[in-house]
């Protein structure tokens, strides 16, 4: 009996000592510990992502020949359609090159694109953060925009050696400026994620919409990046206005919910646009490490 009591007391004492040590530890040691845990966790995340890829591979492999033939036909049609678009694009590209030559305009290569597979979604904020299988070793830096095609997925918030965490457009930690389709004056609105209730759907909100803005009739208005903030390239698609705009009770502005441009739940692969030159915001995201 006494031994049990002594054992319990020792456990409590050990816990108290551990807590006290954790509280008193220098922040650098704690940060190192956190980093170490992320690196320790990384192989498991890699394995998880790869096993999901493997499962998808075998699931596709088990399809019948008829299904594969039908998929091949569909693919051929899509390819044909894309080829026509590609030809049209060639004309536009040639015209673009011609105009640049006339104006002697030098296009800066501002971003390096790093393609990354999605390893997992952070269980603590489902829908709003993903982990990708590329990290510092691949040149990814915090703050870099993450896209899929021409669609904004989110933004890198933390970078580890071989993995990176990405805040999705629906994350409360995501914020960027936007142009609204149909606004001829190109006034900037604000897009930011909204904290979801438990079991609720994560959302994004577009606010500070000018009072006299009217969405184009017949289709949801598209919301684009402005390219003015130095993080996102311009004219990337953030999403669509959800049905309309609503006046806020105060202010001459309106707001609306944003339907993200990609189905964030089904993302398998994304591109990270790493800026070739560090912007000051990156330094702030890394803490007080800049001058």
């Amino acid at each position: 009996m006494d031994q049990n009591r002594q054992g319990a007391r020792a456990s409590y004492v050990a816990l108290a000592i551990f807590v006290a040590l954790w509280v008193l530890l220098p922040s650098a040691v704690r940060r190192l510990n956190r980093e170490a845990f992320a690196e320790f966790q990384a192989p498991a995340l890699h394995l998880l992502g790869k096993s999901r890829d493997m499962a998808t591979f075998w699931e596709k492999k088990s399809r019948s020949t008829e299904e594969m033939a039908a998929a091949g036909r569909d693919l051929a049609r899509i390819n044909a359609a894309l080829e026509i678009k590609l030809n049209a694009m060639d004309d536009v590209r040639r015209e673009n090159v011609r105009l640049r030559e006339i104006t002697r305009y030098v296009v800066p290569a501002e971003y390096m694109s790093v393609v990354a597979r999605v390893a997992t979604r952070d269980s603590s904020s489902w829908w709003q953060r993903i982990v990708i299988r590329k990290g510092r070793n691949d040149g990814i830096r915090p703050g870099a925009p993450v896209v899929f095609g021409n669609n904004v997925v989110g933004r890198v918030t933390a970078v580890h050696l071989t993995t990176s965490e990405v805040d999705l457009v629906t994350s409360p930690g995501f914020r960027c400026t936007a142009y609204l389709e149909g606004d001829e004056q190109n006034r900037i609105a604000l897009v930011n994620g909204v904290a979801a209730n438990s079991l609720g759907t994560a959302k994004s909100r577009v606010s500070v919409i000018p009072h006299d803005y009217t969405p184009p009739a017949g289709q949801p208005a598209r919301v684009f990046t402005t390219g003015m903030g130095g993080v996102f390239p311009s004219r990337l698609l953030l999403g669509y206005l959800d049905g309309g705009t609503y006046s806020t009770p105060v202010g001459n502005f309106k707001e609306s919910l944003l339907i993200p441009s990609r189905d964030l739940y089904n993302l398998q692969e994304v591109s990270v646009l790493v800026p070739l030159h560090q912007n000051p915001g990156e330094a702030l995201m890394q803490g007080d490490q800049f001058q």
Partner: peptide, 15 residues
């Protein structure tokens, strides 16, 4: 002016 606003919105930490 819009550029200054955009730069702050996109580069300054939200939290």
């Amino acid at each position: 002016g819009s550029r200054s606003v955009a730069r702050f919105i996109e580069q300054f930490p939200v939290e």
